[in-house]
């Protein structure tokens, strides 16, 4: 049972790290916090592998470490450190305090949702499952509440992490191939989004998502 408590505890840590990703005011910091979060995720995978005795998850955690802790943050750090929009500021629509409250509400909602689910495989890890769902929503919330397009990329990554965790929790014994697909998918998506963000900044000289409503052709 200790293993599962560890899993749930690490899942709680995930929420905190994702709040840090969302609320940090510079893309570079966000990238660092994202690396930290991914590290927590890898730890979560390891704990889950230990708890469920799933060999596949070891491989998952290894590949996740390479892609999520090293490659993606590196790409984003490299790409985004050159871009800054002084006029935009942090680009947050909600104040940090309200964001925390929102995150709490999201978690409560997700928990109440998950508590209604009766799956034999997920009985012990319901808090973690709730967190994984909430994580997905936090990613969406990041996209909605941040005007900075770079933050939207992070929002996407958070969603991706959330869904990744859900998959791991519910299908710990899924083949490695699935994880490889997800990981590469994430890398390519991030690369493409980084390129697009750079292009947008070079064209419009702004990172404000509100200015993008006039993009045409």
């Amino acid at each position: 049972m200790v293993g599962f408590q560890l899993i749930n505890g690490l899942a709680g840590l995930l929420i905190i790290t994702s709040l840090l990703v969302i609320l940090s005011d510079r893309p570079g910091n966000s990238a660092r916090f994202y690396a930290l979060q991914s590290l927590v995720l890898v730890a979560l995978f390891l704990a889950l592998a230990e708890a469920t005795d799933s060999h596949e998850l070891y491989l998952w955690s290894a590949s996740a470490f390479v892609t999520k802790v090293v490659l993606v943050p590196l790409i984003m750090y490299r790409a985004f450190s050159k871009l800054s929009d002084p006029k935009l500021g942090s680009g947050a629509v909600l104040s940090p305090a309200l964001s925390v409250v929102l995150a709490a509400l999201v978690v409560i909602l997700c928990y109440s949702v998950v508590s209604g689910v009766s799956l034999p495989a997920a009985a012990a890890i319901k808090p973690a499952l709730a967190v994984s769902l909430a994580h997905f929503f936090l990613g969406l919330a990041c996209i909605v509440t941040q005007r900075n397009i770079l933050k939207q990329v992070f929002g996407y990554c958070l969603m991706e992490n959330g869904s990744h965790l859900t998959l791991a929790l519910l299908a710990a014994k899924a083949p490695e191939l699935v994880e490889v697909g997800i990981a590469t998918d994430a890398i390519f998506a991030v690369v493409i989004m980084a390129v697009l963000g750079t292009k947008i900044f070079l064209t419009l000289h702004t990172l404000d998502a509100r200015q993008l409503t006039t993009l045409k052709g």
Partner: peptide
């Protein structure tokens, strides 16, 4: 409005409603 963030908000709202 053309603001994709708002569209995302709709997705969130729809998901929340479905979840509820």
């Amino acid at each position: 409005g053309g603001d994709f963030r708002v569209y995302c908000l709709y997705i969130v709202a729809a998901l929340v409603i479905l979840l509820v």
